[in-house]
Computed example of a mutant assay.
Amino acid sequence: MIRRASADVDLSLDRAWLGFEGDQDSENLDLSGKKQKQLLQELKDTAEAEVSGPPLVEI
């Protein structure tokens, strides 16, 4: 019998929903490598802030 269980939650966030589309999309091949790297960091920071706010409280 399992007395204790652990569960992970996988989340998928849409880049556009987070405001990263067009010239703000790190996958835009017209952007320089430096700009893509900067946008990836901004995307990471934005996603972390989004999921650590109200959604985390609801879980």
Rank of each mutant, 00 (worst) to 15 (best):
P55E: 08
A7Y: 03
D14Y: 03
R4E: 08
V57H: 09
W17T: 07
S32I: 05
V57K: 13
E50R: 10
D10K: 14
L40D: 13
V9Y: 12
F20Y: 01
D30G: 15
T46W: 00
L56P: 01
G19E: 02
L29G: 08
G33N: 12
F20L: 03
G33W: 01
G33D: 13
A5D: 03
A47Y: 00
L43I: 02
W17G: 08
L31P: 00
F20H: 00
E48L: 13
F20D: 02
K35S: 12
V51N: 06
Q38C: 06
L11I: 15
L29M: 13
K44S: 11
R15L: 15
E48F: 07
A16V: 09
L40R: 08
A7T: 06
S6G: 03
E42C: 02
D8Y: 09
T46F: 01
T46Y: 00
K35H: 11
K34W: 03
L43C: 01
P55L: 10
L11D: 15
T46M: 04
K35L: 12
D23W: 02
S52F: 07
V51G: 07
E48M: 10
P55I: 11
L11H: 13
L56V: 04
K34Q: 14
Q38K: 13
K35Q: 15
E50Q: 11
V9L: 15
A7L: 06
Q36S: 12
I2P: 12
A5Q: 06
P55Y: 05
W17N: 05
K34A: 14
A7M: 07
S26N: 07
G22D: 03
L11W: 14
S6L: 06
L11K: 11
D25H: 02
R3E: 07
D45I: 04
P55A: 11
G53E: 11
S12D: 14
S52H: 08
L39Y: 00
P54L: 13
K35W: 02
W17R: 08
L31G: 02
F20P: 00
A7H: 05
G53K: 11
G33F: 01
G22T: 04
G53L: 07
E50Y: 14
L56I: 03
L39T: 02
L18N: 03
L29I: 13
E21N: 10
I59A: 11
E27W: 07
K35P: 05
S12E: 15
A5V: 09
G19M: 01
S6C: 02
E42M: 06
L56W: 03
E48G: 05
K44V: 05
I59V: 13
A16S: 11
G22E: 01
L56E: 09
R15V: 08
